[in-house]
Every structure is written in structure tokens, then in C-alpha cells.
Amino acid sequence: MIMGLAFILLASLLSTAVLCSPTERASYSLVDNCTGSSSFFSCFDFFTSRDPTNGHVRYLSQSDAQAQGLISASENSVYVGVDYKNKAPNGRPSVRLQSKKLYNRGLFILDLAHMPASSCGSWPSFWSWGSETAWPGSGEIDIIEGVHTNTVNAMSLHTAEGCSISGTGLAGRVVTKDCYVHATGQTENAGCGIESASGSSFGTSLNSVSGGVYAMEWTASAIKIWFWPRASVPAALGKSNPNPSEWGLPDANFAGNCDFNRHFKDHRLVIDTTFCGDWAGVVWDSNPTCKNLAKSCQDFVANNPGQYAESYWRINSLKVYSQ
């Protein structure tokens, strides 16, 4: 009788294992839906401290951003912009949003109608990190990032020592493989970087195709990023339980010799637009278009407000899923 019962239990387990295919096990459930006037800004805190990347920027509080017209929301989308009307010798007013919640793994999907244009001096990004004090020990994931006239997205990870990627299983172009911020043979703080395969993935090029959708999957074994321009967004993305295994090759596949549970933990999501600073400011002279406009990045950003009328995010939704 006992042996018979054990056989029945074993058969039941095997049956369940067969029914629950790898595809089914990979599905996700919605945990946070940040959309429009009803919920988007309630998902975030407004960061108002000194810019950790040393940009020529002043981040405003929610009330100040509202009063100056830098944020607004409708039922289906939100606007997050910068000051484009006034000279800004002390830093251009902007907004930096940081999620109230901390995340450890998950699926993050950002639907964009518009992002800051490819303008000299600008440095917009959608990313996540542990905190300034913990950096780089708790890691950084740059999902959308670029500077100046860039029109192709740059995705990267930044970590403490001991994390690298193989550079396989992706559609994008691998730029660097060592995620350590002080890696030998790489530019300081380059991390492991991958350039998008899509020419419509960033700034002005993304806006010209009516935006698109970014998805980042963070698991214990890899961090993957997909991008679809508006006309190519798959219908499967709208499922209540999205399944990345159905999406094909990711733009970026950060997998390899890395303990992701150790190097990435307790992340806040960040959406911001800064100017100049540790990246855009440093490479100003290496961009011929921008270099000819002013003697420095800071001078140009301070004295040419009208250049930033298109430096805004128009966000349809940000959704976070958990397995």
C-alpha cells in the first residue's frame, strides 16, 4: 500500500513537471503599474540632492517641477522635461525620479512615446542602482543611455571586481566585457557595454518612429534587454503574464562569469536627464558637432536653453513584473 501510494505521488510529480514547461515557468505577474495621472508619480521620489554624476543640472522637487511646467500627466501618459526657456549658469533645472521601492530581480517594461532628443550637452538615461554609498558594490544596470548626438542606445553594467560577460546570445554589438568599473584595459568606469542593434533605439532616432518599448529581465543568471520600435512591438508583450522566452534574441545579453545575486541587489529605478558631467562633459571635445558650438559643454548648456525644447520624456507606462 505504501509503495503504491509512493508510486502515485511520483507519477503526479512527473506529470506536473511535464505540464509545466520551461516556457510556462518563465512567465511573470504584474506587481507595479506606473501609468498616467493615476499612479505614475506615486511610484517615485523626486531626487533633489547634488547630481552624483557631477552634471550641470539642478534637480527640482515635485512641487517646483510642477510649478515650472517640467512635469504633467494625463490619463494615459506623463511628461517629464527640463527648463528650455531660461539661461542656467548654476545648472539647468531638470527632474530625476527614483523609485520608492527597491527591487531584486524581475521584469521591467518601459513604454515610451518620446525621450530626450539627441542634443549636444544632454545625457538622458533609464537605469537602476543600489545607492551612491553602496556603488559599485550593489551594481548598476543602464537600460537606456547616451550623450550628445548619439542615436543608438548604449547598455551597460557597472560592478565591483569579479563580474564579466561572455558576449554571446545577443543581437547587439559587444563593446566591453569586464563589468568591473576599474577593469584593466578599459576606459575607467566603462563596465561591460553593449550597443543596440537598432538605429532607432535612442534619442532623436527613437522619437522619429513614435517611440518604442524597452524590457529588462533581471534573473539570478543573466540580465537581458530588448528594444522594439513602435511598429515592431510584439502583441505578446501585452499579455497579463509576459514571457521573455517568446521574444527572441535580446539586444543585450549580460551573462557569463558573474554572480548576479552578489553583484546586483536592492536597486531603485531611475529616470533622469542630466547635462555634461562625468560622461557628456568629458567627451565634449571628441564630438565635432558639439565642440564647434561652444568652448565647453557647461557653457553651451547654460546659455542655449532653446536647444532643449525636445529634451523630454513622454512615458506611456512603466510596469514591473515578478516571477
Rank of each mutant, 00 (worst) to 15 (best):
L5V: 12
A6L: 14
I8M: 12
L14M: 13
S15C: 13
S21F: 06
T23H: 11
E24A: 10
A26V: 01
L30S: 02
S39F: 02
S39R: 08
F41P: 02
S42Q: 14
F44S: 03
D45F: 05
D45L: 10
F47G: 03
T48E: 12
D51Y: 08
N54G: 01
S63K: 14
Q68I: 00
G69L: 07
A73R: 06
E75M: 03
E75Q: 14
S77R: 12
V78T: 13
K85H: 14
G91W: 09
R96W: 07
L97I: 10
L97M: 08
Q98G: 04
Q98D: 09
S99T: 10
Y103E: 08
R105F: 14
G106F: 10
F108M: 05
D111T: 14
A113W: 10
H114I: 02
H114C: 03
S122Y: 00
S122M: 04
S128E: 12
T133E: 14
P136W: 08
S138T: 14
G139N: 09
I144Q: 09
T149A: 04
N150I: 00
T151M: 13
N153L: 00
A154L: 12
L157V: 00
G167K: 00
G169C: 02
G169S: 12
L170A: 01
G172I: 08
R173G: 06
R173T: 15
V175L: 12
C179N: 08
T187D: 13
C192M: 08
E195D: 14
E195Q: 15
S196V: 08
S196F: 10
S198V: 06
S200C: 04
T204F: 11
L206I: 12
G212F: 08
G212V: 07
V213C: 06
Y214D: 09
A222W: 00
I225V: 15
W226V: 07
R230M: 02
A231E: 12
S232D: 15
V233E: 09
G238W: 12
K239I: 00
K239P: 00
S240M: 09
S240E: 15
N243V: 02
S245R: 10
E246C: 00
P250Y: 09
A252R: 07
A252F: 00
N253Q: 10
N253K: 03
G256S: 07
G256V: 04
N257T: 13
R262K: 15
R262A: 14
H263I: 04
H263F: 13
D266Y: 09
H267S: 10
L269P: 01
L269M: 12
I271K: 01
D272F: 01
F275G: 05
C276M: 07
W279P: 03
G281P: 06
G281F: 11
V283N: 07
D285H: 14
S286V: 09
S286F: 05
N287G: 00
C290T: 07
L293K: 15
L293T: 08
A294N: 14
D299P: 01
Y308K: 09
A309L: 11
E310N: 15
S311P: 04
I315G: 06
S317E: 11
K319H: 03
K319M: 04
Y321I: 11
